[in-house]
Write a protein that binds this DNA or RNA. Structure first.
Lengths: 120, 120
DNA sequence: CTTGTTGTACTAAGTGATTAATACAATCGT
DNA sequence: ACGATTGTATTAATCACTTAGTACAACAAG
């Protein structure tokens, strides 16, 4: 389990995104229990407080539910998970197309570039 | 001239990216002079020091050249500009495809999503 | 030559992110 | 009942980013 903390953005945001990704991929299945905050913090090499903040964001997004002392679990609401998955995919595509448009790429150039990168 | 400073990343990085974009689009033509650091800072509503840091990054990227007292200009090397343009486009596409792959999208689903978003 | 503009440098202060080190209450397993 | 684990809260310290204010040397234009 790898943790990539390369951006110059707040670490807790990056942690939230990566845990979210694991939920969306099903690596953390719906209803399944999440590792303890302390364990996750050790794995990621960050302070427990930072991981705590990432988990709080996860709950606010509705992807995780916290029971006071029995640990944290992924939501059982698969609709929420699927909606988040589609949203993330759409955002990624929209951002990419926005950048290409900003750079003045025509539709043909963009399609060509997409096909080219797809092969890698 | 709009300046979007919305991310939680360092402002100078965002400034560098947006000035870079203007160079890549040709809004700041090769060899053309760039506005003074102080003027740009006022336009963007940031401290001159912050804009200064953004410009230093531009020079390090080879997109701008600074003469000690006659202001700063865009590089005349169009090859550098075009290379940066292609690099940015490739990175955008690669990142998008990476996210889609992480989310478990098949090639068909990805193509469908791309076509769908393209229409907007 | 004088004046204004330019890039650059410097210090000080404020803010947010992160780390560190604890501490506490609630619950689960034994 | 008891100990271990869990989420949560608190306080302080450190660090990077940002702002503010000022200053200086080099060059252009008058």
């Amino acid at each position: 389990m790898e943790w990539k903390l390369t951006d110059s953005r707040p670490i807790w945001q990056q942690l939230t995104e990566q845990i979210t990704l694991r939920i969306l991929k099903g690596e953390y299945p719906p209803g399944g229990r999440l590792p303890a905050v302390r364990d996750l913090a050790v794995q990621a090499g960050v302070n427990p407080n930072t991981m705590q903040r990432a988990m709080a964001q996860l709950e606010q997004d509705g992807l995780a539910v916290g029971s006071r002392t029995a640990g944290r679990a992924v939501t059982e609401d698969t609709a929420v998970i699927q909606a988040a998955r589609r949203k993330r995919a759409r955002e990624a595509v929209a951002q990419c197309l926005q950048i290409l448009a900003d750079l003045g790429y025509t539709r043909e150039e963009a399609v060509a570039l997409l096909k080219e990168e797809w092969e890698k």
